[in-house]
Design a protein around this nucleic acid. Structure first.
Length: 797
DNA sequence: GGTTAGGGTTAG
């Protein structure tokens, strides 16, 4: 059981009585006694260590010069080494070394279907197993030859183990591929399809490559993960593939990835930086690779292998009735139906043809729902169909894309789900990414650092600067009186006043009302749930809404009070079980108290006093009982929880009381004449000063003259057209505020993207802590409502 | 444990 390094005549020798058996002829019935198998190591796996010195190492060897009697099929096979042999092999043997194995047994390869290699594998373990290594001669050293052959080490020197860590690869020429072999290749991409979902488990990439031999070779790459696929952006890119298997299909040679496959892609432009695009961080890349890429680039440029037409064209050069590739930025997107998604893109250039308008609901749009008029005119609406929809759904607005084989159709066609009057606009150019992958049809996200994206960003930024200039010159104060500017808000105050500038507002005395036409520059809090507050109308205090973590601790603290409790005479007490399927709630009976008065009214379940529950359990029960008041035992009596927690749960709504203004005590509720029990009745009965949910935000306004911080508070609910109580209880109301704010102040958007707003402001004096000198003028937005983003994505002109 | 695809336009 050992690894022997063969070195000319001086080292170990393969015993002469052993006879070689070609790899292709090995079967499970092979008698391995006195046999050897010889092959080149084309893959060396990692040394896998199990428990207590049990090592396993898997390699693939390939027949180098098959004897004439051997077939060319199955010339590559898996070899599994065990124990100390695996360990010393791992240290001593490099990829590309030629090895001879003896003392092996033959097993069925469990991975034959996956790696398409030999149906058998060689197993090397125990005392008979032996590996002889002959290293290929090193590449010719620079003249004069300075390294005598005798200097080459015949022992396993440290130099050898270092070499083992960075295997040197050899690359096959594309006109010299032997069927069944596993090879490494370099090639220039002459055709490619972005990875698409196969009918199996993997994504499939199709490419055709060529090299200096001028041979065209088709390649099929199957990988489950998209990132393991070649990152090809355009024809002319250069790929380096390791461990692809040569196959014959339809009488021509093709390549398929096999075990240990990896690929690195390079841009093919002469003179550009050689930057590898790889999925793995640890791929080999040497000076030789650099040279190979540069040589292939020059060769490609001299040979006209690649059509000289540009691989992508800008919107400004798009012809009707054409297929083309587009490099662009995604601004917004919206699903149309299950087979179609709308992508709104631009590349900063203006298409000479009028572009198709597509209407969609704003609440299904991801990204801004409207843009400046200038920008709207540059936006191309792309309808993406069928298999591309799934990929499109994962795209994020802002991403840079290349869309391959996009089709421009004049006159427009009907958009599914919309009536013809909504979508049909003759003489408009429509863009379709049809279903299927023919001609490489597909979408690819380009990285920010790619040269094409850098160029795209230059064009876009130049446009944005123009856009901002336009906005500044065409807006207030010059246009304050005009009706030309479309506004996203509406005043309902009824004041008959002309708008003034922010600088005029700042110079005015407090106590006045102003109309302004402004844009929203920024706002606080960015985390909109923090805008939700609790307000006491009695003491006018404002506090944050406690988070669930705090509430849970209040409940848990309250349930620790285990003093015996004598409930008041007007209650009936008993256990209640939680209406849930969840096993963790089982075996937990909570103590509940019902009002006998309500019982007599037939409304016993209308109001529950619940004791000893957790926050989670209380919420569970609140789904089934309309009013739940959490209680605890305190000094032998029934008491409310600390008022940091809600004193009442009504469905998903929670009601809080003011600690300062409440005189809380558990007492009986009078419901005479009342149809339903509401929070006000409960609060009154319990002596709780009910806190009100309010929205409080600080907005920074901007116009051509100045900026101004204003509050949105007392009129916040009508501004957003939502109730703060709803915001506290449901996600939809929260989303609605988020959408409104994203519309008024698009995240990452330029000033040109922010709509103009007509506001009514009140200015008032607020006493500072330090007396008269510290008085401040504050401003509040009042009597103003946001007009919900219009339901069209089209150019409003 | 093992297949997928194997370039060559949707038909909205």
């Amino acid at each position: 059981m050992s690894v022997h390094l063969l070195s000319g005549g001086t080292g170990a020798q393969v015993p002469a009585h052993l006879t070689r058996i070609p790899i292709s002829l090995i079967s499970t019935s092979t008698n391995s006694k006195d046999k050897i198998v010889k092959g080149k190591v084309v893959h060396k796996g990692p040394l896998v260590s199990g428990s207590a010195d049990s090592f396993i190492l898997k390699i693939i060897i390939q027949e180098e010069n098959p004897p004439t009697n051997a077939s060319t099929q199955n010339i590559s096979m898996n070899v599994v080494l065990f124990g100390a042999l695996a360990k010393s092999f791992s240290q001593a043997v490099n990829q590309e070394d030629v090895v001879v194995a003896s003392g092996f047994t033959v097993g069925k390869s469990p991975t034959v279907h996956k790696d398409k290699l030999h149906p058998c594998n060689l197993l090397l373990s125990g005392g008979d197993a032996c590996i002889y290594v002959s290293r290929p001669p090193p590449p010719p050293p620079p003249a004069p030859r300075s390294l005598p052959a005798s200097k080459r080490s015949s022992a396993l020197s440290t130099e050898d183990s270092r070499a083992a860590k960075t295997p040197k690869y050899t690359y096959a020429h594309l006109d010299d591929l032997k069927a069944g072999s596993v090879v490494n290749v370099y090639g220039v991409v002459v055709f490619f399809k972005q990875p698409f979902k196969s009918r199996g488990t993997d994504y499939c990439s199709i490419l055709k490559i060529t090299d200096k031999s001028n041979k065209m070779i088709g390649c099929t790459i199957f990988c489950e993960k998209l990132e393991d696929h070649p990152k090809i952006f355009q024809v002319g890119d250069i790929v380096r593939m390791h461990r692809v298997k040569v196959q014959v299909f339809n009488n021509s040679v093709s390549l398929v990835n096999t075990f240990g496959f990896s690929v690195v892609t390079f841009d093919g432009a002469v003179g550009g930086a050689v930057e590898p695009r790889a999925s793995s961080h640890k791929f080999s890349f040497s000076q030789e690779d650099q040279q190979t890429v540069e040589e292939l680039r020059s060769w490609t440029a001299s040979q006209a292998v690649i059509p000289s037409t540009p691989s992508a064209i800008p919107l400004s050069a798009v012809q009707p009735r054409a297929y083309f590739n587009l490099t662009c930025q995604l601004l917004a997107k919206a699903p149309i139906d299950t087979t179609c998604t709308l992508l709104r893109v631009w590349d900063g250039t203006r298409c000479p043809h009028t572009l198709l308008k597509v209407m969609v609901e704003p609440n299904v749009t991801e990204g801004p729902t409207s843009f400046s008029t200038e920008r709207e005119n540059l936006i191309a609406n792309i309808l993406v169909y069928d298999n591309h929809v799934e990929f499109a759904q994962q795209l994020k607005p802002g991403a840079f894309l290349r869309i391959y084989n996009l089709r421009s159709i004049p006159g427009s066609s009907k958009v599914p789900g919309l009536t013809s009057s909504q979508s049909e606009e003759t003489d408009h150019l429509a863009f379709h990414l049809h279903g299927g992958t023919s001609y490489g049809r597909g979408i690819r996200v380009l990285p920010e650092n790619s040269p094409d994206v850098q160029e795209l960003k230059r064009v876009i930024e130049a446009f944005q600067e123009d856009e901002e200039l336009l906005e500044i010159w065409s807006t207030p104060p010059e246009s304050l009186d005009s009706e030309a500017v479309e506004c996203s808000t509406e005043r309902s105050c009824g004041h008959d006043m002309q708008p003034v500038t922010l600088s005029e507002v700042k110079q005015s005395r407090p106590g006045q009302v102003h109309h302004v036409r402004i844009q929203l520059r920024s706002y606080e809090p960015c985390r909109l749930y923090q805008a939700l507050k609790l307000y006491c109308s009695k003491c006018t205090s404002i506090q944050d809404v406690p988070d669930d973590e705090l509430l849970a601790s209040v409940f848990s603290e309250a349930s620790k009070d285990s003093d015996p409790c004598s409930p008041p005479p007007w209650v009936l007490s008993g256990p209640v079980s939680l209406p849930t399927d969840s096993p963790r709630f089982q075996n937990r009976a909570l103590s509940v108290h019902l009002s006998t008065h309500l019982l007599s009214e037939g409304k016993s379940k209308e109001l529950l006093f619940l004791m000893g529950s957790t926050l989670e359990e209380t919420c569970q029960l609140a789904a089934s009982y309309p009013n739940i008041v959490p209680v605890r035992s305190s000094g032998g009596r029934l008491a409310l929880l600390d008022l940091s927690a809600p004193f009442l749960f009504r469905g998903r709504k929670r009601y809080y009381g003011c600690k300062r203004c409440s005189k809380a005590a558990v007492s009986e509720l009078s419901v005479e004449g009342a149809e339903v029990i509401d929070e006000k009745m409960v609060a009154e009965a319990l002596g709780v000063q009910l806190l009100q949910f309010v929205l409080l935000m600080k907005l920074e306004l901007q116009d051509a003259t100045d900026t101004l911080d204003v509050f949105l508070w007392r009129h916040a609910e009508s501004f957003f057209s939502v109730s703060a109580e709803d915001v506290a209880a449901n996600q939809e109301a929260q989303n609605s505020i988020r959408q409104t704010m994203d519309h008024l102040c698009p995240p990452g958007g330029s000033v040109g993207q922010r709509p103009w707003l007509d506001l009514c402001l009140t200015a008032y004096r607020v006493e500072g802590d330090g007396g008269q000198d510290q008085d401040q003028t504050c401003y509040q937005i009042c009597h103003t409502t946001v007009i919900r983003p219009s339901s069209t994505l089209s150019d409003p002109a």
